[in-house]
Design a protein around this nucleic acid. Structure first.
Lengths: 104, 104
DNA sequence: ACACTATTTGGCGATTTTGCCAAATAGGCA
DNA sequence: TGCCTATTTGGCAAAATCGCCAAATAGTGT
């Protein structure tokens, strides 16, 4: 892995790290339906609103979601719908794992 | 997010965490070509072999790769080729980010 | 049994991530 | 202006992750 290659994989890792959290996956899943503001998502997830805000910042910095301020609220929506394919891949891995479990 | 939903997303996160590291992404990328043993991958990555072994264990526990002992070596190969689609998604996010950068 | 190679495991310090609280910021409305 | 709601930021302690070293394990060949 030379320096250039290393930097490329670290960039890939930066995006994939943004996805590596249950709450953030949940947020993506929800934003697939429609856009939501921080308060909405906070109620759904059930942690402190500052925590949700930070999760949203991480996803935004990764370029996965975007925000738009309207009136009193900040609405977030999916920017890269391709992450949904990543989603289906994750469920794929899990179901394959389960199948392999049953074989044994 | 009720208890069941919560557990589902934590399971998804468990898989996505396994992918969230430059070395592990590199390993997946390499195993896409052909199978490799720990020593091979260690030389390519350039960190301690025990570190590589642990990365491989994480990927194996996530069900993304499998191992097979032959002779003196343990060979690893991709189990879930669907992770490659995740790969293309990550590069997609990055190139979309770059495009958006250039717009501004 | 011994030496050698490949791999895994245990453990440790260093770094990063997580989630809460409190405080700061921003906009809407009386 | 002052109050209220929504959101972000700073800071901190707890937890998780990372990578090295040393030691343990396993298989090969002598």
């Amino acid at each position: 892995m030379d320096e250039i290659e290393k930097r490329q994989f670290e960039e890939l890792a930066r995006i994939s790290k943004a996805l590596a959290h249950a709450s953030r996956l949940f947020i993506i899943h929800k934003l697939d339906e429609q856009e939501y503001c921080v308060k909405d998502l906070t109620e759904m997830i059930g942690v402190d609103i500052s925590t949700v805000s930070k999760h949203l910042t991480i996803l935004k910095n990764a370029g996965i979601i975007t925000d738009e301020k309207r009136g009193n609220c900040v609405y977030y929506k999916l920017q890269c719908r391709c992450v949904l394919s990543m989603f289906s891949c994750l469920t794929d891995v899990i179901s394959t794992n389960r199948e392999r479990m049953n074989e044994i």
